[in-house]
Nucleic acid binder design. Structure first.
Length: 424
RNA sequence: GGAGAAAUGGCAGAGUGGUCGAAUGCGGCGGUCUUGAAAACCGUUGUCCUGCUAUCGUGGGACCGGGGGUUCGAAUCCCUCUUUCUCCGCCA
């Protein structure tokens, strides 16, 4: 959510920046500014009347104390009209506030100046790449065949238990999954992140705080009876730790890492490219989250990008890092890097991490601020997060790229975690 | 799930209708003293909205778990929701 002060002061700047995201903000901004003006005018008037009321009420108090009943009654008479006026102002104010809010949350975050204009994935900019794409023994099997061949992930049983998109990990498949989770968490802790294990269902306030609600309501599983949501990412609970809080500048940056299962309804997004592990309703992910000082949030982003990259390098997967163009970026992000690994048998790049700086966009919704030592004023923090990493596509790439014809070689860094070198 | 009690500033904890944004203590910050530190003493100490001011500031308003109500006036009374605690029941 953009701050109202920015909207008031930099309307034209916002219009220009949002063109990068192919978003026409002009009409919304006009509306916001006129609503805001009306709101302030009425609020000021109401405050003034409240002030008057406070004075009269105080006087009535002392009049009664002094036993001057008649004068007190006269003063009461005076308040009735003022009270009524306040009430009608308040009644008008409610809908204005509501509409103002609903308009403001329609505005996406402003993209960072390095973000290029574009309409979709084809316009993303390759920042760098690494690893080697090696030839696989023929016939190279896609992961959905390999998992059956070695009986490590079972979609049919997942369907039986729950439904499509809820796989059952079996034997060495389950061990591999757990090994990756532990490896990612350990690496995060080594990099200075504090490990967290948050709830995986959240309330409405949390959903709103990180921007899933109200616009992406249909993407989350909703527990109607208790009005709770299954998290689509650990970003939601972990960032909401800091909702409604004021941090000391000295505490920044706050760095947390968390493993959670993630739940996504993925309504309407099934198609040709989502076979097997490519898209699931439930999957495992380790997420890194930082709360940073605004002056240093891009350093933090850089650091996070390097961390994610190091994980992929250690797993020995060919990868590339893409800077998303305006059209492919999320609503809330100011700058996003996507990490893609090469899936040898599918012969395509799979997105395994999205690492973003949200600047103050989430912080404003979260009301998460910080204070510089010796300074009275608070200002909004910057929030960042990134997958480090999302498991299913990593698993897909590992088992496709490391197939030997007689088995699947486990990456060396994982062997201490799995306890075996081959899946066969 | 049943019965009862409670929710106040960073924390502890007063306050049961009238200058209460809120006593007091602790903590924090600034100062005096000291070679330095501690102790002691003095001062200061929330958030949000808004007006004025180039700035330090300063005026007004709101906020005592959330929402609603009664009243000229609510931290204080009423309703409701949420949460916490105690007892009982159930239970990984």
């Amino acid at each position: 959510m953009l701050t109202i002060s920015l909207i008031r002061e930099k309307k034209d700047f916002i219009i220009e920046r949002l063109k990068i995201k192919n978003f026409d903000a002009e009409d919304i901004l006009e509306k916001i500014i006129s609503l805001d003006t009306a709101r302030r005018e009425k609020q000021t008037r109401a405050d003034l009347l409240h002030g008057e009321m406070n004075i009269i009420s105080r006087d009535i108090g002392s009049l009664i104390k002094e036993g001057r009943q008649n004068e007190a009654e006269e003063a009461k008479e005076k308040t009735y009209k003022i009270k009524e006026e306040i009430r009608s102002l308040t009644d008008e104010l409610g809908p204005i506030d509501e509409e103002l809010r609903s308009e403001i949350i329609k505005l996406p975050n402003l993209p960072h100046h390095s973000v290029s204009h574009g309409h979709g994935a084809d316009d993303n900019v390759k920042v760098r790449e690494g690893g080697e794409i090696t030839a696989l023994p023929e016939p190279a099997l896609p992961h959905w065949d390999l998992i059956k061949k070695y009986d490590i992930i079972d979609f049919d049983l997942g369907i039986k238990i729950t439904g499509a998109g809820f796989p059952l990990y079996k034997g060495k498949g389950a061990r591999l999954e757990r090994a990756l989770i532990n490896f990612f968490l350990d690496e995060g802790v080594k990099a200075g992140y504090r490990e967290m294990m948050p709830p995986v269902v959240v309330n409405e306030d949390s959903g709103f705080g990180t921007g899933q609600l109200p616009d992406k309501e249909g993407q989350m599983y909703h527990v109607g009876l208790d009005n709770l949501y299954l998290i689509p990412t650990a970003e939601v609970p972990v960032t909401n730790i800091y909702r409604d809080s004021i941090l000391n500048a000295a505490e920044l940056p706050v760095k947390n890492v968390a493993y959670t299962p993630c739940f996504r309804r993925e309504a309407g997004s099934w198609g040709a490219h989502v076979r097997g592990l490519n898209r699931l309703h439930q999957f495992d992910k380790v997420e890194i989250v930082q709360i940073a000082h605004p002056d240093r949030s891009y350093e933090a982003l850089e650091e996070m990008v390097n961390h994610v990259e190091s994980l992929i390098v250690k797993l020995g997967l060919p990868y590339r890092i893409m800077r998303l163009c305006g059209g492919d970026m999320s609503f809330t992000s100011a700058l996003t890097y996507d990490f893609e690994v090469w899936s040898g048998a599918q012969k395509r790049w799979l997105e395994v991490s999205s690492t973003s700086n949200f600047e103050s966009f989430q912080a404003n919704r979260l009301r998460c601020r910080f204070r510089e030592k010796g300074n009275k004023q608070t200002q909004l923090v910057h929030t960042l997060n990134g997958s480090a990493l999302a498991l299913p596509r990593i698993v897909a790439a590992i088992i496709e790229n490391n197939q030997t014809g007689t088995g699947i070689r486990v990456p060396q860094v994982l062997v201490p975690y799995t306890g075996f070198e081959m899946i066969d």
